[in-house]
C-alpha cells in the first residue's frame, strides 16, 4: 500500500538536460554578437548619432513582446477548446515572459525618447497602447493569482488572455491609424543595410532567449502543478 503511494508520487527533481538550454545558449551567443555589432560595428545613425544604437534592443523587445503575447493567445484559445492543462501552463509562461519584455520595451523606449524626441514620456497613441498592453497582461496574471481551483483558473486565464490580446493589433497599427509622435514601422527599405543585419541578429537572439524563458517557465508551472496535485505523502496518509 505504502509502496504504491510512493510510486505514484512525483519523481524527485533530477537535474536533467532539457532541449531549451541549447536554444538559450544559441540566443545568448547571438545576443553577445549582436550587441557587440550594434555598439561597435554598425554605423551611428545620421540624425540620432550614437543614441540610435538602442534600436538594436528596443525594436527586438517590442517584436518579441508581441510574439510572446501571440503565443499566449494561441495556447489560451487551444486550451479553451481542448482543456489540456499543459496549454494553460504555456499561457502563463508566455504572458509572464511577454510582460517582462513589455517592461523592457517601455524602459528602453523612454531612454530612447529623451535624447531624440526631447521627453521621457508623452501620451502618444503608440506609447499609450504599449502601456495599456502591459497593464492588461499584468491584470491577467493578477486574475490568475486570485483563483485557487486549477480548472477554473485555467479557463479564466484563457478567456482573459484572449480579451487582452485585442490590444496587440491595436498597438501594432496605432502608428498607422492615429497621428503619433512615434514613427511608423521601419522596413528594410527605410533602414541602412548594415543596420538591418544587426537588427535581425538581435531579433533572433531575443527570439531564442524568449523560447528558452517560456520553456523554463512552462516546466516550473508543470512542477508546481504536480506538487499541488500530488497524492498525500504516505506518512500523512497513515495518520
Amino acid at each position: 500500500m505504502s509502496t504504491e503511494a510512493v510510486a505514484s508520487a512525483p519523481a524527485p527533481t533530477k537535474s536533467r538536460f532539457h532541449w531549451e538550454h541549447l536554444v538559450g545558449l544559441l540566443g545568448l551567443v547571438l545576443l553577445v554578437a549582436g550587441q557587440y555589432m550594434g555598439l561597435f560595428v554598425a554605423p551611428p545613425e545620421r540624425m540620432m548619432g550614437e543614441v540610435g544604437r538602442i534600436l538594436y534592443t528596443h525594436v527586438p523587445a517590442a517584436w518579441l513582446a508581441m510574439v510572446a503575447f501571440t503565443v499566449a493567445f494561441v495556447t489560451a484559445v487551444a486550451h479553451l477548446f481542448t482543456g489540456r492543462r499543459g496549454l494553460d501552463w504555456a499561457t502563463e509562461a508566455a504572458v509572464e515572459v511577454g510582460a517582462m519584455l513589455n517592461v523592457l520595451l517601455l524602459i528602453q523606449g523612454s531612454i530612447f525618447a529623451r535624447p531624440t524626441w526631447g521627453v521621457w514620456w508623452t501620451w502618444d497613441p503608440r506609447l499609450t497602447a504599449s502601456a495599456i498592453m502591459l497593464l492588461t497582461f499584468v491584470g491577467v496574471l493578477m486574475l490568475r493569482g486570485a483563483v485557487r481551483d486549477p480548472d477554473r483558473r485555467a479557463t479564466w486565464t484563457s478567456v482573459a488572455t484572449v480579451l487582452a490580446y485585442v490590444n496587440i493589433p491595436i498597438t501594432y497599427f496605432s502608428v498607422k491609424w492615429w497621428r503619433s509622435l512615434h514613427q511608423i514601422q521601419s522596413s528594410p527599405e527605410t533602414v541602412a543595410d548594415p543596420m538591418v543585419f544587426v537588427l535581425r541578429l538581435n531579433a533572433f537572439a531575443f527570439l531564442f532567449i524568449m523560447i528558452w524563458f517560456i520553456a523554463r517557465r512552462w516546466r516550473l508551472a508543470q512542477t508546481l502543478a504536480r506538487a499541488d496535485e500530488a497524492p498525500p505523502l504516505p506518512a500523512q496518509e497513515a495518520t
Binding site: E45, M48, L181, T190, A192, M195
Partner: peptide, 16 residues
C-alpha cells in the same frame, strides 16, 4: 518634441 522618421541612415551614406 522632435518626430523622427522611420528612416535609419548612416551619416552621409559613407561606408560604415
Amino acid at each position: 518634441m522632435v518626430k523622427h522618421s522611420n528612416e535609419y541612415e548612416a551619416p552621409d551614406g559613407h561606408p560604415p
